[in-house]
Design a protein around this nucleic acid. Structure first.
Lengths: 190, 190
DNA sequence: CCGCTAGTTCAAGAAAATTTGAACCAATGC
DNA sequence: GCATTGGTTCAAATTTTCTTGAACTAGCGG
């Protein structure tokens, strides 16, 4: 059935004989970790696999090593790409063909900002609408009730302001740490 | 069947005639918001209901107003209590009896720290084990492979350090702001 | 135009999380 | 003790979310 798992180009060059045990541990670690953050396990598994690999992997590699369906890998990679947790490597540089190769993003700052955007952004949008509706509703109330409702709406706005203040600071704090020696070509242009 | 929804003590005193529209909006807002953070919707609904209420509510009030089962309310309140998102009010002060009354915690700092502890704590525990196992695994590898794996493990440790640095700062930033001149900063658009 | 590889889409099935409700416990009052 | 209220527990039902796989699009030769 899986008629097209092309035996993965023999680039045993950079890809120094993958270590299955190391792969399994990384896959498990990221699956669980990201799952807690609300990301599907298979997505975490893909990231973990890439993290465990000394060289970039292609679509078929991932399908084979994780033993999940093409569909899942496709969707998982789409998510990871969108949230900038993986980078695509120029295909030409790895094999001559046209398939894409993937590498994990290792900068915590970029990872976090990508995930935050995926999760927080839609949330903020949703919230804005709710606040608007709340304000309109309040028009109908009167007296002590109205006072109370306005108070609560004010509270919501305070929270929003506070969150708006915190998120940017987080981004700064997560900037690649001053451990200079490990910061090789892993530049931090963001 | 629901033979025991005691008609809620007639404390129409503080509880200035609840506004169903306001309640609905708040319930919807918090359900959705907390859901994104990985908290069950019914839990968000309970918090939202309390947030919308001018006075504390008891178990039976919540069951009635939300129209969910006793079981859910019990579990939801357990979660909210544990993460310190609701406070229990001295029963005696509301009615003479022995039922508990609940109020929402409004300080963002406490809310956030509670939720973080619920989510991050188990995660850190899990992670520690994985890191340990990874390190052991690595003992078996050699040469370039070993070098690579040690590098990755170092990366994981860096991340852990960075996260450990960020979380406390977040707590501080979320400290309840004096609100005095906060009204000025209304320009938070995004 | 045909055949083949690389990858996406999406309805339907599988798995995981949440909700329910009945059984249960604990405190109070008679 | 026994009945009643306030609340918890947990297995089973339900809902939501994730995964699968077959059908499909697209690039590249020939």
């Amino acid at each position: 059935m899986l008629r097209w798992l092309q035996p993965r180009p023999p680039t045993t060059d950079i890809l120094t004989a993958a270590d299955p045990a190391f792969e399994r541990e990384c896959v498990a670690l990221f699956s669980e970790f990201l799952h807690v953050l609300g990301v599907p396990k298979s997505v975490g598994a893909i990231y973990g696999l890439l993290f465990a690999s000394p060289g970039p992997l292609c679509f078929a590699d991932i399908v084979e090593k994780l033993g999940v369906s093409k569909g899942s890998v496709s969707q998982g990679l789409a998510f990871l790409r969108q949230s900038r947790a993986v980078k695509t490597v120029n295909s030409k540089s790895v094999d001559g063909g046209r398939r894409e190769y993937f590498e994990p993003e290792l900068g915590l700052r970029r990872l976090a900002s990508g995930l935050i955007q995926e999760k927080i952004q839609p949330l903020t949008k949703e919230t804005r609408g709710s606040l608007q509706r709340l304000r309109e509703q309040t028009g109908a109330a009167q007296g002590a009730q109205r006072t109370f409702q306005l108070e609560r709406i004010k509270q919501l706005e305070t929270w929003r302001r506070q969150l708006g203040r915190v998120l940017p600071v987080m981004q700064i704090l997560l900037k690649v740490s001053p451990s200079a020696h490990s910061a090789r070509q892993k530049a931090m242009a963001d």
